[in-house]
């Protein structure tokens, strides 16, 4: 099954500024294409509009009611990071007609999702648990964490390659380990920093993933997500039925290309380095915004953030790293040769 995260992860590419017209227009196009699930929200999920991560153009309430109205067949999904959003945000989303909720926690932190998955299960809402920054943990550890999420009552569990660091073999190994540890559908969510998002998603499907995330035109954090309009025909050609109409999904991608400014993300220097360094893709805009005016090479900032193992939500670290690189005179000198060698380890 294809899970469309354009109106949630895509928010990172436009500084969380999608307005009512874009939300409605895209949701209608995705619905018409037969996309089974459309996820909506701030890039970091419910309740995450903030100075730390960026302020959304419209409130969660407006986003959810707009998309709900536009969806005739597709189910509506939302995302929540415990510690950012709360159970009260979940209740409001369910009242708005959210059919599926995904609770996101970092790779080794499944226990953070216990309460919110339980909260949703008690109310009869379908809850998934997803492990972010999955390159930071071994396949075996991810399988253990995924088993915990399933034990809490998750209807599906999986991983996000939040930094776009993984290659197809890494993905197959992780998805295979998780699929062997749980009886619920397994999710894969890719980023395209190293140009592997579609190949990674195909590897995930072949390794047993039942749900694969994608975004129109790749609109998503960092170098972008798996391209929905490419993934759908690739899955169909390799024998995985998606139920999504080819022309419909191409039309939805055309809409996103026209309506979402600026241009769709792609693996540029910042994206490639972010992927190598294992830095959460959502940091991209923040790194560029702080590094460029300070005269610091954003590539050095990504490598230093990777060394510090910064995760989604720690955007405040960027200011320190830029200031340190600036004052140490390492600006634009490429002083991170050591980390570069270690980046793919």
């Amino acid at each position: 099954m294809v899970h469309d995260a354009t109106l949630r992860d895509g928010q990172h590419a436009v500084a969380h500024r999608l307005g009512v017209a874009e939300l409605r227009g895209y949701a209608e196009a995705a619905d018409a294409a037969g996309v089974p699930v459309v996820e909506v929200g701030h890039g970091l999920g419910l309740g995450a509009s903030s100075l730390q991560a960026g302020r959304a153009a419209v409130s969660d309430d407006v986003m959810l009611s707009t998309v709900r109205e536009a969806l005739r067949h597709s189910r509506m999904a939302v995302f929540l990071l415990p510690g950012w959003g709360t159970s009260a945000d979940l209740d409001r989303a369910v009242a708005h007609g959210a059919d599926v909720v995904r609770i996101g926690v970092h790779c080794t932190e499944a226990t953070l999702a216990e309460r919110h998955i339980g909260h949703l299960r008690e109310r009869g809402t379908e809850a998934y648990g997803v492990l972010m920054m999955s390159h930071m943990a071994s396949p075996g550890r991810l399988a253990e964490e995924a088993a915990l999420l399933a034990e809490y009552g998750a209807s599906g569990v999986g991983i996000m390659d939040s930094a776009g660091h993984l290659l197809p073999d890494d993905v197959a190994e992780r998805i295979g380990a998780i699929a062997g540890a749980v009886d619920v559908p397994v999710v894969f969510h890719g980023h395209d920093n190293l140009g592997c998002a579609v190949a990674n998603s195909l590897a995930a499907a072949r390794a047993g993933a039942g749900v694969v995330d994608a975004c129109a035109r790749g609109f998503g954090a960092g170098a972008g997500n798996t391209r929905l309009e490419v993934l759908v025909p690739v899955l169909e050609r390799t024998g995985f039925a998606t139920g999504v109409d080819l022309y419909g999904v191409l039309d939805a991608a055309e809409f996103a290309g026209r309506a979402f400014v600026p241009a769709p993300p792609f693996p540029d220097s910042a994206g490639i380095v972010g992927g190598l360094a294992g830095v959460v893709a959502a940091f991209r805009q923040h790194v560029l915004r702080h590094a460029l005016p300070a005269g610091v090479d954003p590539r050095d900032v990504f490598f230093e953030l990777g060394r510090r193992q910064a995760v989604a939500g720690q955007e405040d670290l960027i200011v320190d790293v830029v200031a340190e690189l600036s004052s140490s005179g390492r600006a634009r000198t490429g002083a991170h040769a050591d980390e570069r060698k270690e980046g793919t380890a």
Binding site: S50, L51, Q52, G83, W84, H106, C107, T108, E109, L112, M133, M136, A137, R308, Q309, A310, V311, G313, Q314, D316, L317
Partner: peptide, 22 residues
């Protein structure tokens, strides 16, 4: 608004708090 991150970094990240104000 208050937000809490739990960091999985190894070695562990030093406790940190950012105050943003308008």
């Amino acid at each position: 608004k208050a937000i809490l991150n739990i960091s999985p970094a190894v070695p562990p990240a030093v406790f940190r708090t950012a105050v943003h104000a308008v």
